[in-house]
C-alpha cells in the first residue's frame, strides 16, 4: 500500500503534541480521574473507526452530487451545495493514505465546523458510514501510539477504547487546516 500520506517519526510527536492530548495523557497517571467525559461522533473508514468531537459536528448528509474541482489533490473530492453555501468535501481515506472508498448506500458526508486561519468555516468529510455518538471518559483515552498507525500523529488527539475496539480521535482542525489542504503544497503528476 503506498504511503504517500505522511508518516512521521515519534520525535515529531513530542514537539507538535496538541495540548489537549497531553492533558489526556496526563490524566491516566493522575489518580482519582474526575470521570469527565466528552461526546464523539464515530464513523468508519475502511475497517477502522474514527471519531470527531461532537461539538464540532454540524450535521451529517447523505452522499450527494459533488462537483469536482479540477487540479486539486486527490483527497479533495470537490464542493457541494449546502443550503446555498459552497462547502468543500475531503475524502479522508485518501488524505490518510488509504485506498479510495467505494460509494455505498451508507456513504455520507460529515459537515464539521472548524477554525481556518481565524475564521470559522464549514467543511465536509467523506465517510464510509456513520456509527454512533459515544461518550468517552477522559481517563480512558490514551495518547496516540508513536508507531504503528499510518496516520500522522498530529492528526490525532488520542486513542479511545470502546468494547475492544480502538477509536482514533481526530484533531479535525489540523486535518482541515489550509496548509494541509493547500493545493500549492501538493504536486500533481
Amino acid at each position: 500500500m503506498d504511503q504517500d500520506a505522511d508518516v512521521e517519526e515519534s520525535q515529531e510527536y513530542e514537539e507538535s503534541a496538541p495540548p489537549r492530548a497531553a492533558a489526556k495523557a496526563a490524566s491516566p497517571q493522575a489518580s482519582g480521574a474526575s470521570g469527565e467525559t466528552t461526546q464523539y461522533l464515530t464513523f468508519q473508514l475502511d475497517d477502522e473507526v474514527f471519531a470527531v468531537d461532537i461539538s464540532k459536528v454540524r450535521e451529517v448528509l447523505e452522499y450527494t452530487n459533488i462537483t469536482k474541482v479540477p487540479r486539486t489533490p486527490d483527497f479533495m473530492c470537490g464542493v457541494i451545495n449546502l443550503r446555498g453555501s459552497v462547502v468543500p468535501v475531503v475524502d479522508l481515506r485518501l488524505k490518510f493514505g488509504m485506498s479510495r472508498s467505494e460509494r455505498t448506500v451508507n456513504t455520507c458526508i460529515i459537515i464539521v465546523e472548524i477554525v481556518q486561519e481565524d475564521e470559522v468555516t464549514e467543511m465536509g468529510a467523506l465517510a464510509d458510514s456513520v456509527k454512533e455518538v459515544m461518550e468517552l471518559e477522559h481517563s480512558k483515552i490514551e495518547p496516540p501510539p508513536k508507531l504503528g498507525t499510518r496516520l500522522r500523529s498530529d492528526f490525532l488527539k488520542g486513542m479511545g477504547k470502546h468494547e475492544d475496539q480502538f477509536i482514533m480521535l481526530l484533531e479535525i482542525d489540523r486535518i482541515f487546516s489550509t496548509e494541509e489542504l493547500s493545493i500549492a503544497n501538493h504536486t500533481l503528476s
Binding site: 481556518q116 486561519e117 489542504l181 493545493i183
Partner: peptide
C-alpha cells in the same frame, strides 16, 4: 459564492 480559504490559491477559479 466564495470558495473559501481552502481554494484561495487556485489558479483556475475565482468562485462558484
Amino acid at each position: 459564492k466564495g470558495l473559501g480559504k481552502t481554494f484561495q490559491n487556485s489558479e483556475e477559479f475565482s468562485g462558484a
